[in-house]
């Protein structure tokens, strides 16, 4: 469990970091919770590791009134750790779903160092954040030495472990909407017993008005090669009264048309069924929290 030789830099500015990775065969290191195990197993052997941890710019978590979403946005620096997001008073009050998702990741040790930028960039098909980010219709702010761009999360994550990141590009921040008052939310997860990764994880946001469900967003992780929005579920539940039967009917569609993963921890069939169960649970809790 000893990595191959590599060069190591720890730049203190984003500019420096971008210049370093522009030289090629560099991997950036954030929390290292995914990268370091891969390097120790020699499944990853970058020639150059660029450690982002000293770049203060990437750690900021702040609210931006105008920004990307009509109701305001939270900007989460790529280096914000799972623990910071889980415990941030700002995130807990303005985007509680994300804090709830973060609190479900791995274990305390992992949450203390793992970062939202690293998790998003790694695009593990069983990672928790992507479910939340899909349900939040989050955006990913990317940067290179030459310029910046912002992609919606569903365009950023392309496939299992594959994103739209270019080799010389960094995730700078994740942008999520400031939650509208009264929105109910929930993240429900069936954790794989060894690693804690999601066998399936479902994030839900709902709004009600005059006894009707007016808004539903559902993000699913773990089921397929990449996280996705369960739009069929959303459509089926919107406009209903949100009864238990409505929830069941909508949740039953959560895995429809999805090529489900199989591994030693869960067959495709089980994953599909659990997606329905956890979708129903997430919707039920979200509705109970909505007002």
């Amino acid at each position: 469990m000893i990595p191959q030789n590599f060069e190591y830099s720890a730049p203190t500015s984003l500019k420096e970091a971008l210049a370093l990775i522009a030289k090629g065969d560099a991997k950036v290191l954030a929390g290292g919770m995914s990268l370091i195990p891969l390097m120790k197993l020699r499944l990853a052997a970058p020639e150059h590791v660029v450690d982002l941890s000293r770049i203060a710019d990437l750690k900021s978590v702040h609210e931006d009134g105008k920004g990307e979403f009509p109701g305001g946005a939270l900007h989460l620096g790529a280096l914000a750790t799972h623990f910071e997001i889980e415990s941030s008073a700002l995130v807990r009050s303005k985007c509680p779903l994300l804090a709830e998702v973060a609190s479900n990741i791995g274990d305390v040790q992992v949450r203390n160092v793992g970062t939202i930028g690293g998790s998003t960039a790694h695009a593990d098909p069983a990672a928790d954040y992507p479910a939340g980010l899909m349900a939040l219709e989050a955006k990913v702010h990317l940067t290179t030495a030459k310029g910046e761009r912002t992609l919606p999360i569903d365009q950023f994550i392309v496939d299992a472990l594959s994103t739209a990141l270019k080799p010389n590009e960094l995730v700078r921040e994740i942008i999520v909407p400031v939650e509208t008052r009264g929105t109910g939310f929930s993240y429900q997860k069936l954790a794989q017993p060894a690693s804690g990764f999601a066998v399936v994880g479902v994030a839900a946001r709902v709004r009600k008005s005059a006894g009707k469900v007016t808004f539903v967003r559902v993000g699913v992780t773990g089921l397929a090669g990449k996280a996705f929005r369960a739009t069929r579920v959303e459509k089926l539940l919107e406009g209903t009264s949100g009864s238990a039967a409505d929830i069941q009917k909508a949740a039953a569609q959560a895995a429809e048309g999805v090529d489900a993963n199989t591994d030693l921890h869960a067959s495709a069939d089980y994953r599909r069924q659990m997606t329905k169960v956890f979708t129903a649970r997430a919707l039920t809790q979200a509705l109970s929290r909505a007002d």
Partner: peptide
């Protein structure tokens, strides 16, 4: 194929 702790499930303090 359960060759390390990400796939070999040990009980944990929390469980």
């Amino acid at each position: 194929i359960t060759g390390e702790l990400m796939d070999y499930a040990l009980p944990k303090a929390s469980t």
